[in-house]
């Protein structure tokens, strides 16, 4: 199983790569969009702010390639943290910015979503997934995952929300539209539960 980890100049790819290696996959760090064509899976990681992340994706030619390979041709993708947020149509961090638009929705600051607890939401929090999605197979509901974020994805369509995390308000923990997956938490930093989720992403086969 070949996996490309998109290196668009934002943050830490080493732990994501290493986590996939542990699972017996062959992750490669993709430094150019052309590297995405002959892999089975794409991972869009990311640490940072939405507007800057999108600027990097656009300038590096990643956005068009991702829309083509994932949006049109159906290659499975997992977005992590900022990488998940940028799947949305629109982000509000660092000005209102267009996202990749692979799952329609907006990314808003937690307080704009009614959250009155500490922001960023940092630490291990339980993740609730009502119906068993392939991404959470074998993971008990309410298992803890590691979060660190100040913004959250609000999917336009309810069916795209596959897991939520209770803070003082329920926030989106994971989204999915067909073969496009995204999680707000960091599976690569979430010990055993995180490893299982990455394994589930590897085993997923699009119908």
């Amino acid at each position: 199983m070949k996996i490309a980890i998109v290196n668009y100049g934002m943050g830490n790819l080493g732990s994501v790569r290493r986590a996939f290696e542990e699972l017996g996959a062959e992750p490669l760090i993709a430094n150019h969009p052309s590297a995405l064509y002959d892999v089975n899976r794409i991972v869009l990681p990311g640490v940072g702010a939405f507007a800057e992340g999108m600027a990097h994706l656009d300038q590096g030619g990643w956005s068009d390639t991702l829309r083509e390979l994932v949006g049109e041709q159906g290659k499975p993708l997992l977005g992590i943290c900022l990488g998940m947020q940028m799947l949305a149509g629109e982000g509000h961090e660092g000005g209102v910015t267009s996202g990749l638009g692979l799952i329609s929705g907006q990314v808003r600051r937690l307080d704009a979503l009614g959250c009155s607890l500490r922001i960023p939401h940092v630490g291990w929090n339980e993740v609730c997934h009502a119906e068993q999605d392939v991404l959470f197979e074998g993971i008990p509901s309410a298992a803890d995952f590691y979060f660190v974020h100040s913004y959250a994805f609000v999917p336009e369509q309810r069916e795209h929300l596959i897991a939520s995390v209770p803070y003082d308000v329920d926030l989106t923990a994971a989204v999915r539209r067909d073969h496009v997956f995204g999680c707000q938490f960091h599976p690569e930093k979430s010990s055993k539960a995180g490893r299982r989720l990455l394994r589930n992403f590897l085993s997923y086969s699009p119908c």
Binding site: G11, G48, A49, E52, E93, G94, P120, V148, H149, S150
Partner: peptide, 8 residues
């Protein structure tokens, strides 16, 4: 924080 996000 503007560059990498305040969570970092």
């Amino acid at each position: 924080s503007a560059k990498v996000g305040n969570q970092c």
